[in-house]
Design a protein around this nucleic acid. Sequence first.
DNA 1: GCCGTTTTCGGCCCGACTGTTTTCAGTCG
Length: 573
Amino acid sequence: MRLNQKVADIFSKTAQLLEITGANSFRVRAYENAARRIESMQEDLADFLCSDTLTSIEGIGKDLADKIKQIYETGTIDAYEQLKAKVPAGLIEILKLQGIGPKKVKALYETLKIDSIDKLEKAAKSGRLSELPGFGKKTQENILRSIEFYRQSSTRHLLGEAIEVAMAFKDYLREALGKRIKKIEVAGSVRRFKETVHDIDILVVARSGKEVMQACRDFPLNEAVLGIGDKKASFIANGIQIDVRVFPENEFGSALLYFTGSKEHNIKLRQLCQEKNWKLNEYGLFDADGKVIASKTEEEIYDKLSMQFIAPEIREGLDEINLALKNALPTFIDMEDIKGDLHMHTFYSDGVNSIEEMAHAGINLGYSYIAITDHSASLKVANGLDRKRLLQQIDEVRRVNEKLKPFRVFTGIEADILPDGSLDVEEDLIPYLDVVIGAVHTAFKMTKSEMTKRILKAIKTGHINILAHPKGRLLNVRDAYDVDLDEVFRAAIDYNVAMEINSSPKRLDLNAEDARRAVKAGLKIAIDTDSHSSAQLKQVLFGVHTARRGWIEAKDVINCMDLTDLEEFLKRR
DNA sequence: GCCGTTTTCGGCCCGACTGTTTTCAGTCG
């Protein structure tokens, strides 16, 4: 494991344990901040350690620097080991329940020896909880409800699923209230395009808050109401919590900023305001006299704070605020920059549409080109193409190209990188293929060195243009395989291999952080959909926003090139 | 635990809501 990850992990767990023991909350936050900062850092923590400059990192003081050193040398820190010995593991899980914080966890453990969700449930059901000081009947009921919800949905939801539910709600509300709704906008982590999300935040500007609240109750997908007031509703739809809030139009910008987050971004903005004696909350930006300076739009607020507008995708409370103040934020890639899609399947292998149908879908999205990259022969489960069928397909691509000129369909293949590192495509066919994608689809459980060796060998064949889903993860389903990405990056630069951001909401691989690292290392990115139907081409949306989260610009992405530049790039393999 | 500084310790983002208690602590976003 990279030292950064290891340190972030231990710091973050230490923070949780400290919280339960009732430590100073700012001390807890110091550990949390340090963990987040280190995890998202592009640079290697080990370099700072060697040059003795750890304390130059924001949020790392003398104490944490020593602890990083200890982790480097021994793999752990005393403080963490002692806490772990003292605090039962189950308490951390109890902390995850809605409505229960560190104080209640501590009280439950010290009075009733409750150290697991099961024991908590028993105590609540027997009525013992309501007898504790600070607890009452309602708290007891709420805890039982939280336990039930927690058991139903302990994992985070995929962004793709959350967006579907959010869109369904938006459509429903517009349908139900028509012109009585002035604005409706998704905020929160969905707007920031986090790959998985906890809930869906929706802001509404409407004539009557009560009407919106009633519509929330009546939403057909509404499974359970958690709470509904005059301006705020919480309910579960399709297993995902939706929070709806109604605001007047002139406060919409500050509300959107506030509810888009992240929490850390907001905290930094408010610290900035403090220096000017100003105040920022969901109702607006106020000067020292409490007079509104800005509130209608986010743009206006950032402007009054003398900084560039910050795209929601990068609002993480890291470096974005400092750079925006210096007017130094880059211009990130946007949907309009995408000129084609270089990874998709047809019914030749496991897709459902024809080559021509995929091409038409590409044309409809305004693309200049697509690449047809069906699976290679060894991937039997996906009906991979053998030599004969691949040659047939290449022939058909030629015919489609004639018909659809000047739109360009590239011939291609998604060739399996076999366990021994060889590429599952016959050498003499390579010249007929414009785009060769390399991908690991089998034998995921290799050791890190074996897997790295395997992928390096494939890259060094000199045949690959794009390495598809480089870490092989399936969100909420399968972890990434173990591979030394830095070594892969180095080899990929030598052989002109682009790294894929696979746009499928089930993958999003590379993720934003790794993609950012790849670009920093000097690599190009391909934002592909890996579509298995023409409708899926639209999922490029997820890839583009993941790229934005990774601070990626259009110039870093090969499918933002025009046709001739891309042809040039593809030939350099 | 970090940070900044009037260099040694005090402050660290802000508001709403809930439930318990009767003025506020705990939790959440």
